[in-house]
């Protein structure tokens, strides 16, 4: 990308006073803590890095097999394996904060208290632009029921964290609910600054020779290009029902995909599973967005957000059945 093009097209956007240099991010859990592929990827070309989920204590994660490839996608049951917030602060953050991009820790927890503890500890650190909250975690107190499928619990987590920080608070919503927009409206009302839409869809695969599930946990999270149409529809639904920005995530594999998400109403996009296939894909997508803007005479990428040209008569949600 040449400097002259960069100068002409506005790629940046601002969220709660923080400027992000462009609209392409790497999704939590798909880019480690940014250091594994540092020699391959010029992260300064990205809007930001959503880190691997962090919990209070390190988590070993689930036993193998954790990965199954499926048609145009994959199932995972990593089990939130992570180094824990203390090690993150000691070993990863000093490197991350030197990078010329925004760092957004993703927080995962098994109790409301743990969400608060992790965030409070991170509040004392320099170099953090925002937080993303993974609510698709089992709530230990409620017998492992997922926080993220319980609207009032999701709201409660948001309200509690809102009291603890002035930084941008992004809630990552699960699509495994009947109406994702209810959850989006709830977290908006409780003070969230943005939502990430969507987390993985629940899926399953069986080995017909052994009759055993392929994943050690039986079911897991489906991601990759296979879920892109679902993610796009969810982004469209959420963007229409809330005023806060939406980070679109789910199967984005090209600049064209990213543009679809912007048109559907996403303010920015996160690249997930495709980082596993091509570690530099996020930078290629950022380049592709600028090329598209140049070819279409777009001066500010923001003008694409929600610019879907739809005949509203046909867009009443779920009316196609």
């Amino acid at each position: 990308m040449t400097a002259s093009i960069k100068n002409k097209i506005k790629t940046s956007f601002t969220l709660r006073g923080i400027e992000f240099k462009n609209r392409v991010f790497v999704a939590s859990g798909t880019f480690g803590y940014g250091d594994e592929v540092r020699k391959l990827v010029d992260v300064s070309r990205l809007g930001g890095i959503f880190t691997k989920s962090l919990s209070w204590k390190p988590r070993a994660g689930n036993p193998p097999q954790r990965i199954v490839e499926t048609a145009s996608g994959m199932l995972n049951s990593i089990g939130l394996a992570n180094i824990g917030v203390h090690t993150f602060i000691e070993q990863k953050l000093p490197y991350l904060r030197k990078l010329d991009t925004r760092i957004i820790p993703n927080i995962a927890a098994s109790s409301l208290q743990e969400y608060c503890d992790v965030l409070e500890l991170l509040e004392e650190q320099e170099g953090i632009a925002a937080y993303e909250i993974n609510v698709s975690c089992p709530n230990v107190k409620e017998g492992g029921l997922n926080f993220g499928t319980d609207c009032s619990m999701t709201g409660k987590i948001t309200a509690s964290l809102r009291k603890l920080t002035n930084k941008t608070l992004i809630i990552k919503l699960t699509p495994n609910v009947t109406h994702i927009s209810e959850f989006a409206r709830t977290v908006e009302a409780e003070g969230a600054d943005a939502v990430s839409v969507i987390n993985t869809l629940i899926g399953m695969a069986i080995d017909i020779k052994t009759r055993k599930p392929k994943l050690s946990t039986v079911t897991g999270g489906l991601s990759g290009p296979a879920i892109k149409p679902v993610a796009l529809a969810k982004v469209y639904e959420v963007a229409k029902s809330v005023k806060i920005p939406v980070f679109g995530v789910g199967g984005i594999a090209s600049a064209e995909d990213a543009i679809e998400f912007l048109l559907a109403g996403a303010t920015a996009v996160q690249i997930g599973t495709m980082n596993f296939v091509d570690p530099v894909i996020s930078v290629k997508i950022a380049d592709g967005l600028e090329i598209y803007a140049r070819e279409h005479g777009i001066l500010d990428m923001g003008t694409l957000v929600g610019a879907l040209d739809a005949d509203l008569k046909f867009s009443v949600l779920q009316s196609w059945l």
């Binding site: 859990g29 798909t30 594994e36 691997k52 070993a60 994660g61 689930n62």
Partner: peptide, 25 residues
């Protein structure tokens, strides 16, 4: 051998149990 997605440490998809203290995988 282990089922892998990324091959470089990004996905945490390829654990093998280890002996001794420290992390389990």
């Amino acid at each position: 051998e282990g089922h892998m997605a990324c091959g470089v440490g990004l996905c945490q998809g390829c654990p093998v149990e280890r002996t001794g203290d420290g992390s389990k995988y």
